[in-house]
Amino acid sequence: MGNKIQLCAFFLLFTTVAAFSQKNTPPPDAAKATCVYPAKLYVEADESAARVATIQPGREMVVAERSGKWLRVFANTDVSIVHEQDVPVFGNEGNTPPVSGWLIDKGIVTAQTPHGDEILFGAAATMELQASEPHPPPGAALSARGLYRMVAELFPQSPRTPEAMWRAADIRWQLQKADAFSLPSAHEKEAYLREQIDESEMKKIIKLYPRSRWAALAAYDMIDNKICGDWQGSAKCPEKEAELFVKYADEYPDSPRAAQALYQAAWREASAGDMYQADQDDKKAEEARAKARDLSARLQSKYAQSDYAARAAGLVFMMEQKIPIYGSQEQ
């Protein structure tokens, strides 16, 4: 008997929550908002009422009504994934219906919140740092991404917005990259044979902020989609990749990644030299190594204070000592 009563109670609670969450739609003049901590969403403006959901930091919501310390909101509580379904806030909107409910007006940021852009950016930076720890809180990276996205959505004119857009896009990029490079297709030699990382947000940053630091960082990330998977002993792969990195350094000489790009190119040319040497093609081996030395010299000249200039010196030393570069972990 007790089990039947519990089942009936659960059914009534479920149907009440479902009906409440699906009724109505956000009013057209509702203010957009987000939260900086997990906010409990209730069926009614009462902490003893049934809970609809928990709104995670960075999730988008709109405030439809205020009543004392309570806000009635329509919140986007769908699971934030990182593929095409994860449409950026500063792009097109998804079609997932929001959930309606009441939450306490605490930790809620709107476009009218004083210093709201700083608050959201700081919360996002904290979550991003937590996501990089050995045992991160569940969903930390996605919460950080959501908070950065809301900086751009709520405060488009903020000085923080370009960097926030970049950080949001980069978090998504790195998560997608980890997925793509974990698949069997990641070992295919040709880049087009593996799953490509969505470039839409990176391209938008380059379009909105051309020649900026953030455009340069976006362009560097996108090289991931062009490099080979497994070189499979083919010197054409590192040589092609070296060209991509040199082209990047030429186009973005002031980029924070310019020195890194030149080192990546030098390392690949040196690796190609080892491959040609293994094939007993001494001429091509020397040509590739000469390119590696030239790129190292360019690093020493233009980016002398960077770690990559010192690493390039070590790369040249290894070549002179006839220590194999290909297969080393010195990228």
Score class of each variant (00 low, 15 high):
N3K: 07
Q6I: 11
C8R: 14
F11M: 12
F11L: 15
L13C: 14
A18E: 08
A18Y: 12
A19M: 04
A19G: 06
P28D: 15
P28S: 15
P28C: 10
P38F: 05
Y42D: 01
E47T: 13
T54H: 04
T54Y: 09
G58I: 05
M61F: 11
V63P: 01
V63S: 02
E65N: 04
R66H: 08
W70S: 00
V73F: 08
N76K: 15
T77W: 00
V82F: 14
V89D: 15
G91D: 15
E93L: 13
G94D: 14
S100C: 13
S100F: 00
G101E: 01
G101W: 04
L103Q: 07
D105K: 09
K106R: 13
G107F: 06
V109K: 06
P114A: 01
P114R: 03
G116V: 03
E118K: 09
L120D: 06
A123S: 14
T126V: 14
M127P: 03
L129D: 15
Q130R: 14
A131P: 00
H135I: 13
H135R: 13
P136Y: 09
A140V: 09
A141R: 10
A144F: 08
L147A: 05
L147I: 08
L147Q: 05
M150H: 11
A152N: 01
E153L: 13
P156I: 04
Q157K: 10
S158P: 00
S158M: 08
W166T: 02
W166Y: 15
A169Q: 02
A169Y: 03
D170L: 08
K177A: 12
K177H: 10
A180F: 02
S182Q: 12
A191D: 09
L193P: 01
E195A: 09
I197K: 00
D198E: 06
L208W: 00
P210A: 01
A216D: 06
M222Q: 11
I223F: 10
N225W: 04
A235H: 06
C237L: 09
V246Q: 12
K247R: 14
P253Q: 04
S255P: 03
A259R: 03
A261S: 13
L262A: 01
Q264R: 13
R268P: 00
A270F: 07
G273V: 03
Y276P: 02
D279G: 01
Q280C: 02
D282I: 07
K284E: 09
A285T: 00
A297R: 14
S301M: 10
K302F: 04
K302A: 07
K302S: 06
A304E: 13
A304C: 08
Q305M: 06
S306Q: 03
A310K: 12
R311T: 06
R311S: 10
A312L: 07
G314D: 07
L315K: 02
E320P: 08
Y326W: 15
S328Y: 01
S328C: 07
Q331D: 15
